[in-house]
Amino acid sequence: MSGLWHNAGWHGKAIALLLLLAFLAAPLVSDRYLLSVLILVFYFAYLGQAWNLLMGFAGQLSLGHALYLGLGAYTATALWTLFGIGPWIGVFIAIPVAAAAGMFVGWLGWRFAIEGVYFALLTIAFAEFTRIGFDHLQITGASGGLFLSVNGPGADKWWNLGGGPLLYYYLSLILAVGATFLVARLRQSSLGYRWLAVRENPEAAQAVGINIFRARMIAMLISSSMTAVGGVFYGFYYRNLFPSQVFDISRSIELILAPIIGGLGTIFGPVVGAIILTPLGESLTGLMEAFGINAPGAKLIFYGIVLMIIISLRPDGVWPWLARHLKLDGARK
């Protein structure tokens, strides 16, 4: 990030700082509803960064990130409801659980040369297996769901991720900003260059002696770990978990939209994509409620339409185009 920061022009720095300040100060002027929308913006920006690391940088399409999201969410919430282990500790157990699943999927795919669209199918299959498994796992409530009590001992304390939206607001902001810093740093590292090499031309990457299996596995490790953290956030924010919801393919799909719309393989693409898409989707939900229309799935259809429009207008995503127009030199980043 330091390199990126020094390379950015003064107006790039000014925009970044202003935006950050605006987000920091937003709770002073916004109501609960606006805060909840912003929380979702940051949440999708964060998950978008995690997914983009694997797809945008290492070039591996995962359509099953709900697996890591769900495992992260279930591990931490189950530890809390069953053993009273708080999320700040639980997250460090959730990460290895999801990362182990990620490593297994990656190993299976890349060791046996299951590439491209077949790899994507593999990731869907594992998310689906796990959903069905959790539907029958009695200890976490099976298909009936897992609920976090709101008024158990210590449940309302911040160290157990209880309390109001303000906590979740700043937590999600920290996650999104932190992930952006991390991705920017990785992009500049030799590992980041290895990922680009593997994405651009695996054959040539092999010819120059890059261990492409290892590069992909590291991308998967970081991506699934980050997604697990997002899952812990999801579990404690919504305070209820159903396998049919958290492991559903629509979870996997909705978290890849922001980076695709913002710009695959760019550092700010997932952030820009989340800022554009999430408020649109939430206003649609709001409008439909106002008109008393009950159409589940309408949001996904709407996302699909937005995706088609943006991809046909800006195939590289919005961020590279935006960066050019704002005269920021980070267009490639």
Binding site: Y193, L196, A197, E200, N201, E203, A204, A207, V208
Partner: peptide, 22 residues
């Protein structure tokens, strides 16, 4: 390798650096 296997969207400089990852 056959067919000039370079990394097309990376710069010449970055392409060279890729060779020195060993």
């Amino acid at each position: 390798a056959e067919g000039r296997q370079i990394f097309p969207s990376l710069t010449v400089s970055e392409n060279l650096d890729m060779g020195a990852m060993l």
